[in-house]
Structures are given as C-alpha cells and as structure tokens.
Computed example of a mutant assay.
Amino acid sequence: MRLTALVAALGAFLASSAEAAQTHIAVAANFTEPAKEIAALFNQKTGHEAVLSFGASGAFFTQITHGAPFEVFLSADSERPKAAVDGGFALADSLFTYAIGKLVLWSRVIDVTDGEAALKAGQFQKLSIANPVAAPYGTAAVEAMKALGVYDALQPKIVQGNSIAQAFQFVDTRNAEVGFVALSQLYGVTAGTRWEVPQTLYSPIRQDAVLLKTGADSEASKAFLEFLKGPEARAIIERFGYALN
C-alpha cells in the first residue's frame, strides 16, 4: 500500500512538473515591484514561472513589433496594447486594464508638499521626468506641467530618464532635486517629501495587459493573465498605490 501511494505521489509530481512552464512578460518599469510579488505568488500557486523584463512601454512595443520573444505585455498605457492588437501582434479578446497609475512629484532635498507652489517657484536646477515619447508617466508629467502653466519655464531644467525607473533613480541619487515618479515607486519610501498630483491635471494612466500572439498557445501565459485579474494579485496592485477598475 505504501509503495502504491509512493508511486501515485511520484506520478502526480512528474505530471505537475511536466505541466509547469515559463511565460516571458514585458513589464512597464513603474510596475516592477508589484510584478515581482505577483510573479512569486503565481509560481507558488501554479508552478508556472513568470520571467519578467522591465522597461519603457514604448521601447517594448517597438521590440514586440520586431519579433521580440515576449508572450505577455503589461504596458503603462492603453494605447500600445491596443496598437499591438491592431497591428496583429496581440489577441483582442485578452485586452484588459490591470491597474490605473498615479503620478507623484517627489524630492529628497526640497519641500514639495505643496507641489504646485514648488513648481511655480522653480527653486531647483534639475527636474526629472520619464521620456514622454516612450513612457506614459512622462507624458502625464508634461500634461500636468502644462495644465499648471509651468512647462515653458521649467523645460530647460528637465532631464529625461529612458523609463520611469531611471527618472526615479535621478531623484533618488540626488542628480535631480525633484522629479515626477509613479506613486507605486514610493511604496515603503519614507525619505523626502511628495505631492500626489491631482488626477484632474493629466489623462488617466490606464495600464493595460494583453496576450501576444507568441503566447496564444502558452498555458502559462494565459494562466498568468487570469491570475493578474484575481483577488490575490489585485490586493497587491492596490497595496502599491494603484487604483483598480
């Protein structure tokens, strides 16, 4: 009886090992930390491994259109996943909003608690933003500055990061005194001061996910997207400061 049970258990283990697979996911830089937590929990619950790559959404979109071997795309906007569908690179029925991002003005060296006043005073040499061509948080930063009427005056002080991760790094290392970052990046950060930019000053940062055609037959890829919609993943997303649909 014991031998039979052992054989059955071994068979179940081998079956589960055979079914476990990898999915390669392109992840917007602002979503780095929550994605890591979600991927670890996904692996624990399903046995599948989510292999994550982080960067600017625009750069990922270009790579996807040139045949990069990603199977899932978690963008920082809604436009690029839709463009991937329209271009024949992704499956339309898989498209959904997984998070709604929030923009924050952050500084380690000056008081930006009243962000509007700090921007209008301009008592700093460098203002960090993500490249607005490649990164939706950069686009939102430009929109907010224009809405406040400070963009023209501050433009000479702007330094651009390739992604929101690099924009954060400029402020974190004090190479820029102030910068626009994602609220999620300040999770657990107590240093400095911050101002959550009113969402009336920029277009909603709707972050969409989509299954790429390269992942159409990947059970791990489809399982990851389903997991991302579930309560455990949504709790992580909300904890990092994102709004949910």
Rank of each mutant, 00 (worst) to 15 (best):
I25T: 05
S57N: 07
A15W: 12
Q44H: 15
A59Q: 12
E19G: 08
G55Y: 00
L52T: 00
V51F: 03
K36P: 04
E33Q: 14
A56M: 09
G47E: 03
G47R: 02
I25W: 05
E19I: 11
G58N: 01
L52H: 02
A40S: 13
A39C: 07
F54L: 03
H48A: 06
H48G: 05
A28V: 14
A39S: 06
A21W: 03
H48T: 00
Q44P: 08
L14W: 10
V51E: 00
N30V: 13
E49Y: 08
L41M: 13
V51I: 08
A35C: 06
I25A: 03
L41R: 14
S57M: 06
S16F: 12
A21K: 07
N30Q: 14
A18R: 13
G47S: 03
H48Y: 05
A26K: 01
Q22N: 15
E37S: 11
S53K: 00
Q22F: 03
Q44C: 09
F60V: 01
E19D: 11
L41Y: 11
E37W: 08
A12N: 07
A59T: 13
Q22W: 05
P34E: 09
L14K: 07
A18E: 14
G58M: 00
A26S: 11
E37N: 11
S16E: 13
A26I: 00
T46M: 08
E19N: 11
A29P: 06
F31D: 01
A12P: 01
A15I: 10
A18H: 12
A56E: 09
A18M: 14
A50I: 05
G11M: 10
K36L: 01
F13I: 15
I25P: 01
Q22S: 14
F42C: 05
V27M: 07
A50Y: 05
S16P: 10
T23S: 06
A35Y: 04
Q22C: 06
